Simulated assay, not measured.
Amino acid sequence: MTTYIMLLNWTDQGARTLRDSPKRLDAAKKALEAMGGSFKDFYLTMGDCDMVAICDAPDDAVMARFGLTLGMMGNVRSRTMKAFPEKAYRELIATIN
């Protein structure tokens, strides 16, 4: 599994229906699980992003499909980053000439 970090912000629609946000999170978790992925962690945040999700997915295509699915619902906008764990980071750096 590959780890991804999603930075999420509510849209105007999502902010207007804020009280439904926990139900939407549950639905998002089920949707990602149906695609073969999972949520590792989820945080409500202060600052530039409203929420941060740490997710695992089998590949980039699954995570792209999940991000597009979230976007179609109209409650959040997301930015997704592929995350390399420390071991992979060290291996990548070691290969630089």
Rank of each mutant, 00 (worst) to 15 (best):
T2E: 13
D48K: 14
E86V: 15
D60K: 14
G71I: 00
T11V: 06
A83S: 11
C55W: 00
A15D: 03
L92G: 14
G14T: 07
R90G: 04
A61Q: 13
M35I: 08
A34I: 02
S38D: 10
A28E: 03
E33K: 15
K40C: 04
R65P: 00
K40Q: 15
M6F: 01
N9M: 00
F42L: 06
P85V: 08
M63I: 10
Y89K: 05
G74R: 11
P85S: 08
A88C: 06
L68F: 11
D41V: 05
M73T: 12
R65D: 15
L32T: 08
K30E: 15
S21A: 14
R16T: 02
M46W: 14
K87L: 14
I5W: 01
M73W: 06
I93Q: 05
F39Y: 14
R19I: 07
G37A: 04
R77K: 14
C55T: 13
D50A: 09
Q13F: 11
K29H: 05
A83F: 09
E91W: 08
S78C: 12
R24I: 04
F66D: 01
C49Y: 09
A88W: 10
D12A: 12
D26L: 12
K29V: 13
K87W: 10
M35D: 12
M46Q: 10
I93L: 09
R24K: 11
R16I: 03
P22H: 04
L25S: 07
D41T: 11
L8F: 09
K40E: 15
G47L: 06
A28F: 01
M73A: 10
L8P: 01
K40F: 05
D60Y: 08
A83Y: 04
D20A: 09
K82M: 13
A94G: 15
L70F: 02
E33Q: 14
D59A: 03
N75Q: 08
A31I: 02
L7Y: 05
D12C: 03
M81Q: 10
L32F: 12
S38G: 13
G14D: 04
M6E: 02
K40T: 15
F42M: 11
D60Q: 13
F84W: 14
G37D: 01
W10N: 06
T80Q: 03
D50I: 02
A15I: 10
Y89W: 12
S78K: 02
T3I: 11
D41H: 12
A94Y: 02
L32R: 06
L8M: 07
R77G: 06
K23P: 02
M63V: 03
I5H: 00
D56S: 05
G37M: 02
I93R: 07
L18F: 09
P85M: 04
P22M: 06
P85N: 08
I54W: 00
M35V: 12
K29D: 00
T11L: 01
G74K: 11
C55R: 01
S21V: 13
K30N: 11
M73V: 04
